[in-house]
Every structure is written in structure tokens, then in C-alpha cells.
Design a protein around this nucleic acid. Sequence first.
DNA 1: CTGAAAGCGCTTACAG
DNA 2: CTGAAAGCGCTTACAG
Lengths: 327, 327
Amino acid sequence: MKPKINDVAKAAGVSPTTVSRVLNNRGYISKETRENVYRAMKEVNYYPNELARSLYNKRTNLIGLVVPTTSNPFFGELTFHIENICTSLGYKVLLCNSLNRIDKEEKYSEMLLRNQVDGVIVGTHNRGILHYHKQNLPVVAIDHYLSETIPVVGSDNYSGGKMATELLIEKGCQYIVHLGGPRELETPANFRRKAYEDIMKKYGRLPITYEIPNTFDPQIQQKVIEKLFCEHPQLDGVFASDDLIAASVLAEANKRGKAIPNDLKVIGYDGTETGQTLLPQLTTIQQPIDLIAKTAIDILLKKVAEEFEELPHETRLAVKLLERKTT
Amino acid sequence: MKPKINDVAKAAGVSPTTVSRVLNNRGYISKETRENVYRAMKEVNYYPNELARSLYNKRTNLIGLVVPTTSNPFFGELTFHIENICTSLGYKVLLCNSLNRIDKEEKYSEMLLRNQVDGVIVGTHNRGILHYHKQNLPVVAIDHYLSETIPVVGSDNYSGGKMATELLIEKGCQYIVHLGGPRELETPANFRRKAYEDIMKKYGRLPITYEIPNTFDPQIQQKVIEKLFCEHPQLDGVFASDDLIAASVLAEANKRGKAIPNDLKVIGYDGTETGQTLLPQLTTIQQPIDLIAKTAIDILLKKVAEEFEELPHETRLAVKLLERKTT
DNA sequence: CTGAAAGCGCTTACAG
DNA sequence: CTGAAAGCGCTTACAG
């Protein structure tokens, strides 16, 4: 059997109460007793049972993290940063990959509730959100509007969309199309499209947006891209809403013998480490992934601590244009 | 306050025992009572506290997952598959990104123990392994030899290394170098190098291996690659031990005006979805990431269930050559 | 078919 | 400075 606090107490010749106090640095303990208890813990190889502690304390130090999938480099990196920062602050991360599927999102939110997480960071649309509200669990969203009371953290999507579109125009593109996420989802990422449309209009151009379903299915993305090239052979500029889509556009252009950047200029969004290593030629808008993670956690932990200083409902973090060879 | 089992009991006019039995489908319960209890759970918005259940049952259905970082596409995809399969089997995943750092690995293993995980899947060298042994916690390793008793799952590294090297030779490369992980780490991935060296010798060539530290630091990788090109200007074939490194080799070749594949042929390892989307030109050896995840979980859960049927100490899953344009 | 009681492994208020 | 007792929210063996 695993040693319990009682075993430590016996080995140290004290009561469980005393062991607990040593463990939690609470109340006065003579130095001698303290050292004796530590020795006993080593001796019996004791690891405190966090389940029991959490049950009593009503605090697990567990954070639920819901992303579409860590397979996507943006979310893989975001997950890394979130977990890393959480750990440095004494929190643990329960990971959920929802693939943006409603059924999975609902099951995850119930699971997180049952497991008594102290808070949740949500990077999906999460329609299971009702569960959270009912239990008023602290929640912070990344790039999604979930409700009036849930803070949103993300990159400055409007600026990013503006920079991308302006760059293509400056570079002389005459026929620029945007490949974006589904319009009906309420996410600040739609500001990338809004900026694109605003800038296009400002320059007297006709904005054309193709929607890519948020299923992370390369097949489906491929279909949309082929359609785009078929329907707009005059195409000479593409602003893609993420780097993977931009890469697929490059591949399609290559297949059709369009030279990059002469015949066609392409700019992406995200600027992940992985993207920069695997496709360093791609011009893109870089999101500050580490800062997004840090900001989301900061806000979440303030809610957990019930510090009701006015929390910003939306935080838009500065993006950076990485100008490379595809524009 | 959150509703507890007692609140449900009151709302249903039964005892907590009965509610618990409904919850766990245990013993005989009249249909009427059962429905009444369900109604009461809905009514008071009840979510069972898994902490309390786990404390009693001595089973958390929690799996610890330790990877270097989900930022790396191989581990990002592996993490996705592991979490996904775990969820489908009723398990939850506590995520740990160790960055291959000893200090972090040790803290994580203690944390996982304290949190009473049912088992651990380790994709790092994990020198905190002692902790696990002491508590004899079920562990499965991915591509790492941790101890005699810990099953290892991975791709067939030797075959992969052999296929890669043979391809470069077939394609006429005269001067082939291998970029591999650090030799001192005991990982089956070293069979990639072993295969490279064996095949080179078989063809009367001199094997040359450069070691890349496993720190996931692009700067350091860059340095090694520059050194490689400086010291071996005759270089016309590279077998890189992962796709990110292969991409950096391509970038360096490009910088030096070496044409791909004419002047230099490059093959990578991993063949992730992300890699195929961002760098579809790259020839590589594809690991069956989903199968690795599935196999590791299968074995782990058998250990958790204490089914001591002979478990294979090492499982080598078939790889696939994806021949593209860089060779 | 259902309930009262004990216990999972901790922590803390209270008493000494 | 230290201990005995009650309680965190469940589950199950036992009794009825």
C-alpha cells in the first residue's frame, strides 16, 4: 500500500496533525519535530494525496484547457505555453482536444466540472459553456466570444488583417482574395476579414472572401482552394487566415504553374515557430502566442482568486508583420 | 454552494445511498426511484465530485502524459491522438511539457504521483522515473528505454533509417551525412543512426553523423547545420532525424545556392500532417503517430488493469517512405 | 428494493 | 508547541 500521513506520523512518533502542519507550513512546529517529520517522509517514501487535500480545500489547482487540436501548430504552441506557465504557478493542466465538435465540447465541459477544475481556458467556440455558467466556474476564452462575462484574449486581428491587405496592395496586387474562417462563428478572428474588406473598399476594390470550415480537414480546405483558383484565374494576391492554408495555396499555385511571388503573392496568419522553420519563405502576420497564453492565465487566475478588480472584457495583443519571400 | 449528493437525495426524497446507487448503476433500484433521482439531479443541477469518488475508489482515470513540448509537430500530433483515445476510453490527460529538462521531469513525476494518476505515458528520457518505480505506477515509454520493466513503443527506427539511407544511395548521392539526436541518450531513435551507419558501411561509404542536442532550440540546430556545410562542402545527401531539421538543412542549402535535389538531396523523419502541409516537397519517413498512440495506451491500460499477460517490452511499428521532391 | 454507518486520506478549529 | 475529533463528498458492506 501507498504510505499515508498516518504512516509518516508513526515513523516520526507524532500525530497526523503534526505531519500535516509540517506539510502545509502552518502553525508553530519545533525545528526538531519538523526535521524529524521530513526524515520520516523520506523514510517511508511519502507523497501526499492531492485528491484528499483538494477535497477538503475545495481547490484543485487544476486548469482545464480546451483547444480544437494540439496537432495544429498554433494550438500546439499555445498549449505548450499555457501548460508551462501554469506549472510555474503551481497549476496543472487537464487537456481537451474538441476538434470544434459540439458533442465533444459538451462532454468535456461536464468532465471538467466533475473534476473540480479551478478554471477553464477555452480556445474553441464551446457551446457547452452553459455548464460553466450554471456552476459559475471562472472561464477565459482565446479568440472567441462566449458570453458577456467571459474575458476574451487574442491577437489584434483587425490590425493583422489590415497589415496583410495593405501589404498585398502596396506590392501591386490587383486581384486579392481572402480565405477566412466561417462567418457565423462569433470570433474576433472575423476582424481579420473585416479589416480586409474595409481596406479593399477604401482602395475601391471588390472584397472577395472564401470560407474555410473550421474542421482542420486538409481535404476540405483543398477543395475550397481549388474552387478559388478555378473561379478566379486572375487571382494575384491571397490573404489566408492561417499559415497552413497559405501553404496549401502555395502548393496549388505551384501545381498550376503560377510563380510566387511574381504571378501570385500570398500572406498567412499565425507565424508559429513550426511555420517559420518548415516554411520560412512565407510572409505572415505573427501572433504573440506566449503573450496570449500569459495574459489568458493572468486574467483567469484573477477570477479564480476572486479579485474583482475590473477585468478587461477583451484584450487585443499586438501582431507583427514578418515579410518574407511570398509577397 | 455546489449541490452535493445530499441535495439530490433530499430533492428526490431518498437517501444518499440510493442516489449513489443510481449514479453507479449498482444493486437493484426500482424504475420509479431511478427516474425520480435523475429528475432530481437535473433539478438541482448536480455534477458528481470526481475527487470524492476517486478518493474512495483509489482510481482517478487520470493518465499523465510527459512530452518534450507540444510545440513540436510530432509531439503535438501524438498528444492529440493520445488525449483523443484516452477520452474515448473514459480517461483524462494531465499534460506535462518537460523540454527534456531533468529538473522539470522530476517535478512532473512527483506531481503526477501526488495526483494519483492511474498511469503515465512518457515521451522523454525522464530521469524522474525512480519516483514511479517506488510507487510502482504503470508506465509506458514512447521511443525511450527507461528500464527493463517499462514497455517501449515507437516506429521501426531501424527500417526507417535503412530506407532513408538506401534511397539517398540509390538516387546517386556520393557524400551522405546523417544529422541525429545525441548518442548518449538511450532511445530507439538511435537505431536510425545505426541503420544509416550499417548501410553506409555495406556500400563501402564512410558514415558521418552530426549530433543535434535535443533541446528544440532552433538557434543551436542552426549552428550545427552551418558547421556541417562548412566542414563538408562536398555534401550531396542528408538524412535528418526529423522534418524540422530537414527543413533547416533545405534553408541553409538555399542560402548557399545549392539546388535541391540536383546538388543536394534531403530526407527527413516523422512525416507529420503539419509537415506535409507546410513542406509538401520534403521526402520523409512517416511514423504512424496514431498507431503509436493507440498501442501505448493499449499496453498502459493492460498494466493498469493488472492483466499480466506477457506484454511486449518493445513494439516497433511500420514506417512508410514518402518520396517527394527533395530527393 | 432501500438506509445508516464507516471509511477513502487529508486539514483545521478547538482544546490543552 | 502538539493531539483528538469532525468533516470534505462520495461509496459500499451490512442490515433490514
